[in-house]
Design a protein around this nucleic acid. Structure first.
Lengths: 350, 350
DNA sequence: ATGAAAGCGCTAACAA
DNA sequence: TTGTTAGCGCTTTCAT
């Protein structure tokens, strides 16, 4: 009788069948001890566990996912890994997902529409159990794809209301933060308040801009085009925006929607020996770790990142548990953090 | 004859069978059209494609992965999403993977051994086609698990030699960067050169520290314990290290292994009105975007991040193509970037 | 050029 | 308490 030397194919991953035959039971029994889903005689269980241990068997999540309905994973789309804000969001989303036994698969879209589409399709094909989106531009094609996907799995829009989508919205009302900040400057006597608008095709940035306009209007100040710059996000964008603003309208305060943008402005001011905050105040957004350590440290607007992440995952889990539960909007309020780059005081805020 | 209203189950994802019956062909034919793997009559192909289009069918990567051998994905482990350096690495790894049609699944270990183990096991169960690791501590348990995994799929160790593992190594010789920097300070006349060592249990940090020691020795300088601080990574760690160093041994130059650490030091110096670089020079590591925009801007050591990412993915693809190809060590040399936080000149470097 | 059927590794009826 | 078996959605012989 020829006996195949099973150990020869040592570079093969053991399957449930290998465990079963090693333990002298059926695959069902193995499955039962793995999932602890039906009574198994104590001694059998021991044998199975021993076999699992010895073969270093781990069930294939692919097969489990194929058989069952879940891959225990959620897809996350963010614009850029290198953004401190999204990095932090990603971290907390990962932690929250993990605490439910889920894997967060995060992809960066680089603000590229076709890349967004590709990733959404890819993640859907991989049968992630839910999708969390932080994205920029909106196209009919994306809306359609997204609504198709949302038909199958829960979708969360972060950073904006989910209106118009079959999705839940989880975000911070950034408009309110900028509004408070602008109003505080006005109360302090500022009249020439500038704003760097990062990317108006991104709904949330548009909303922040509206908070600025609203405060100006309430303060009886006419918006001045020379004090409003449309720029990208980041250090470079901040730096060049500062050049534009400070050689033009000469604001006494500059509001931005991103810490890095603000830090780019700080850098510019230092190069030109413009004192912050004496000659011009500068504010950021997101309260990234860096904003505490910039020189001068940065007045900024904080989002409750843990809460955002927790809510996003919670919404997904809720819909996973009860397929027909409704979508929700979860909105958080931002907090203004006062630091050295302004002379604002708490009283100015309200 | 009862006709089931197929459209009723509209919230179900279409399968290859749905496409087949919609197009009036067998699943085999559909598969052939999808994968373009065998001749199909032009008209049939059209019908199938139309059905695919109409049903918005996308093949399940789960089923494909289960059937075939590949999930078209690679797992990536990094310590922290919030580190600018790893964020950048992650971005380029994602891009490279994508260019090969692969999905990069990146997980953060938070420098937690059990989390590392969990993720490695999880990713292996999900049958990623390769694994890229950047990690800290080394335990027997991890070594064993890793070598088991490496038996099945290609594994890349980034940030360190892969010696002792059945893996390829892809990393920058950071020791050399620190060595050059230290030597440059010595040539410039510095004698009291301090170093903040981020985490010596992390092999790469240990190696950087050795570069420092080596340069001191070559310069005939005895290492001074009061000038060497063991700290964590990051702004806070830098800040407190500065306190320790500058109230103690009073170095005229401080070398670190991380830009953020250095920026924490800059912040401290500003608080204490210690002029950089006049009173003390400071250097970082990684040439993160921020190092150009700090005040003062930071002399630092750059790693060729694109090359690292490209090599890592290349090694995986190579081993995937040819299972029995050997592991390799791919080592890159770092580049010193001179900026305002030192008074070093190019001539001092070599 | 096309189709029937086996099987990837697993779970869940259904039987015993 | 345990085992047999039918799929999950796909690819791939092997026939036709």
């Amino acid at each position: 009788m020829v006996r195949r030397a099973v150990q020869t194919k040592g570079n093969t991953v053991p399957t449930i069948e290998d465990v079963a035959s090693a333990a002298g039971v059926s695959v069902t029994t193995v499955s039962r001890v793995i999932n602890d889903v039906a009574p198994v005689k104590e001694e059998t269980r021991r044998r199975v566990k021993a076999a699992i241990e010895e073969l270093r068997y781990r069930p294939s999540l692919l097969a489990q996912g194929m058989r069952g309905q879940t891959t225990r994973s959620v897809g996350v789309l963010i614009p850029d890994f290198r953004s401190a804000w999204y990095a932090e969001l990603m971290k907390y989303i990962e932690d929250e997902a993990r605490s439910h036994g889920y894997l967060a698969v995060t992809c960066s879209t680089e603000v590229d529409s076709s890349r967004e589409l590709d990733y959404i399709r890819d993640l859907a094909s991989r049968q992630v159990d839910g999708l969390i989106l932080c994205w920029y531009r909106e196209t009919p094609e994306k809306m359609q794809l997204l609504n198709e996907v949302a038909h199958t799995i829960p979708v969360i829009m972060m950073d904006r209301p989910a209106e118009g989508y079959e999705a839940s919205g989880v975000y911070t009302e950034g408009r309110e933060g900028i509004h408070k900040l602008t109003r505080a400057f006005i109360r302090q006597g500022h009249r020439r308040i500038g704003m760097v608008v990062e990317d108006r095709s991104y709904p949330e940035h548009q909303r922040r801009f509206e908070g600025y306009l609203q405060a100006l209007e309430e303060g009886g100040i006419r918006p001045d085009d020379r004090l409003i710059v449309n720029a990208g996000v980041g250090l470079e964008a901040g730096h060049s925006s500062a050049d534009e603003l400070l050689t033009g309208g000469r604001p006494t305060a500059i509001i931005t929607g991103d810490d890095l943008t603000a830090i780019g402005i700080l850098r510019y001011c230092r190069e030109r020996s413009i004192d912050v905050p004496r000659e011009v105040s500068v504010t950021g957004f997101d309260n990234t770790p860096l904003s505490r350590y910039s020189v001068p440290s940065l007045t900024t607007v904080a989002q409750p990142v843990r809460d955002l992440a927790r809510s996003a995952i919670e919404q997904i889990m809720r819909k996973l548990k009860n397929k027909r539960s409704r979508n929700r909007e979860i909105v958080y309020q931002p907090t203004v953090i006062l630091r050295e780059s302004t002379t604002l005081r708490e009283e100015d805020l309200d």
